[in-house]
Design a protein around this nucleic acid. Structure first.
Lengths: 151, 151
DNA sequence: TAGCAAATGAAAATCGTTTTCACTTAGAGA
DNA sequence: TCTCTAAGTGAAAACGATTTTCATTTGCTA
């Protein structure tokens, strides 16, 4: 379930952050997009509607939203840092289409067996994991006619 | 099994790359280290012994080695791009100590069930995955006295 | 050994991100 | 509703990592 913007605004307020038009705009863009967006892409979209908003503000807003856990990072191969509105608020992972960039979440990774075995064998205290699948989504598999989303 | 340097050299030669002292030096550093190293760290070490070698050359060499699949990238949280000599030449994953940066490989990730299920449910054609565990290694768990390896 | 394509190093360019700082503003309190 | 202040903003500059450019050097084939 997507958090409503009002809900997000109230979380921000609770934590002592002010609700500014700039933050609303950034939030809006991320919430409306089903893709993961790089900071630059977010800036671009935000800037279209609100030309006054600077890239710096986008970065600052992303930092705050990530800190509050309202958005999450996608790694997706080479370049790091693109963001996605946090949909399931619990632990989850991503399945990323390498063609169009679509992201699907999944929650049940069931790595506990593997984790336990690794912990036993290596004597590591395992704290977390990063798991992402890549592939081609349904749409991109049929029809190459799909427009590739501009990154 | 670690590829010997000679073997690597011959792979380079086969692909039309020349064997230069600079490339040897970079290769040497990566092969001797059991940690994953950032380009900067590699440069530093290489530079100690061969002060003539520039950072640019390190980058170029890393690109080539990665392209040939002789070294592999480690993601490890925030900052991307550190490299590791490819030890098992097959598909494998990393277990990374968040304190000292030690990396342990493991090969049997057994995600096929999950992968099949995801493919069925999402109609993705799944091509690959990224799996990394993070935690604290045995040494770092006992004794905080361990010196943190400079990144 | 000669010759040339490939490789190198230094400097400059580029890219993404962060810091600085003077100015503006959201929102708590009068 | 108005005032005041801490928090937020934008522009420019700083910054670190990586890439490009270009003149010079070098490995290696003929």
């Amino acid at each position: 379930m997507t958090l409503t913007q009002n809900k997000i605004a109230s979380i921000l307020r609770q934590r002592g952050y002010k609700i500014t038009p700039q933050r609303r705009a950034v939030l809006n863009i991320i919430a409306l997009s089903h893709d993961h967006l790089t900071p630059a892409a977010i800036y671009e979209k935000v800037h279209e509607e609100h030309p006054g908003i600077g890239l710096v503000t986008v970065y600052r807003t992303l930092d705050i939203l990530a800190e509050l856990g309202l958005i999450c990072e996608v790694h997706a191969g080479g370049n790091c840092r693109s963001y996605l509105m946090r949909r399931p608020s619990e632990h989850h992972h991503h399945l990323i289409c390498s063609d169009c960039g679509a992201v699907v979440d999944f929650t049940d990774c069931d790595l506990s067996n593997l984790e336990q075995r690794l912990a036993r064998e290596t004597r590591f205290e395992i704290k977390g994991h990063l798991l992402e699948f890549t592939g081609r989504c349904r749409n991109c598999r049929k029809g190459m006619k799909q427009k590739k989303a501009a990154r």
